[in-house]
Design a protein around this nucleic acid. Structure first.
Lengths: 144, 144
DNA sequence: TCCAATTATCATGATCATATGATGATCCTC
DNA sequence: GAGGATCATCATATGATCATGATAATTGGA
C-alpha cells in the first residue's frame, strides 16, 4: 500500500547516501549490502535517479553514487515520482475521471483531506528533514 | 497508488449495490455494465465478498448480489481488506521491520500521522456514510 | 420435468513489477 | 596503454495482478 517496492528501495538508498557524510561516491555494492537489496536491481534504480539529475554517478575506480544537490533541496516526492505517481490533484478514490469539487463522487470530501495529507507529506518533506529528525537510524548505516 | 484495481472494483460495486434501493438482488451483468468493469472479473470479486459474508448471492432467475448487512455496518476497510492490506499499525515507510515508537526510523513521526489518517479513513467510513453524503453520484447509477 | 437464467469455477493468457546474470562502456591508476 | 574497478545495459525469468472465455452448478418458473 502507498509505495511500490521499487520506490521504497530508491528512498532508502537516497537516505543512505545522504547520511553518508564523506564526500566520496558510494558504490552500489555497498548500498545494496547495507540495505539488503538486490544489487543489480538497485543499480538500475539508482541509474534512473541519476538520469533525472537527482543523483550523480561516477564510473571507474573510486566511483559510485552521490546526491546531486543538497539533501535539503531533495524532497521525498522527487525520488518517489520517478517510479510511482505522486498526484498533485487527489485522484478520485472511486476512479471517476470527471470527479471534481464541482462534480464530486460519494467519497470526495472525506477522501480529499486524506489524499492531500499524503501528498503534502511527500512534497513537503526533504531528505534533510528526515536526517535532521534522526541522524542515522539503526539499519541505515552504510557499511564502510 | 493506495488501492489496487481489484479493491477499487469491489468498492465501486458495493457502493452501487448499496445505492440500489429496491430489495431485489442485482445481477453481475448489470453492475458490470453500469461501472464499465469486466463482467467475469467482477463476478469473481463479488464472489469473494459473498464468501466472506459481506454480500449475499442468489443463483438462478431473479438472482444476483445484495448487501448482507446494513450499509451503516459495512466499512470501506471491510471491503478493501479482502484484496489489499489495510494495516492496523502503520507500516514503516522505509521498510524497517523493527520500527516502533521506541526504536523509530528517520521518517517515523512524520509518516505516522499520515498513515494513521489513511487507516482511519478506511476503518472509520461506512458505505452508508458515503451514500449519505451524496446519495447517488453520477456514474454510479445502476442501469435498470 | 425441462429450460432458461444466473452465479460458481476452471483453464488460459496478457501485462507488469520484481528480480537475476551476463556483458558492454567508461574511467582511474599504474 | 593495459588492467581492473565500477556503472550501464541487455536478455531472461518469476510471480502477481488483471482479465477473458468456456463450462459447471444451482435455481425458479413454464
Amino acid at each position: 500500500m502507498i509505495l511500490s517496492q521499487t520506490a521504497l528501495y530508491a528512498l532508502r538508498a537516497t537516505l543512505c547516501l545522504a547520511g553518508h557524510d564523506t564526500p566520496e561516491p558510494v558504490r552500489v555494492e555497498d548500498i545494496a549490502e547495507s540495505l539488503d537489496v538486490p544489487r543489480n536491481y538497485l543499480s538500475k534504480i539508482l541509474h534512473v535517479l541519476a538520469r533525472s539529475g537527482l543523483l550523480a554517478s561516477t564510473r571507474g575506480p573510486g566511483g559510485g553514487f552521490q546526491l546531486a544537490r543538497p539533501a535539503a533541496e531533495l524532497t521525498l516526492a522527487d525520488i518517489v515520482e520517478q517510479f510511482d505517481e505522486v498526484a498533485d490533484e487527489p485522484h478520485c478514490l472511486l476512479g471517476r475521471p470527471q470527479c471534481s469539487d464541482q462534480d464530486p463522487c460519494a467519497a470526495h470530501d472525506r477522501w480529499r483531506s486524506v489524499s492531500v495529507a499524503v501528498n503534502q507529506f511527500f512534497r513537503g518533506t526533504s531528505v534533510a528533514d528526515l536526517l535532521r529528525d534522526r541522524p542515522l537510524a539503526k539499519g541505515f548505516e552504510v557499511a564502510v
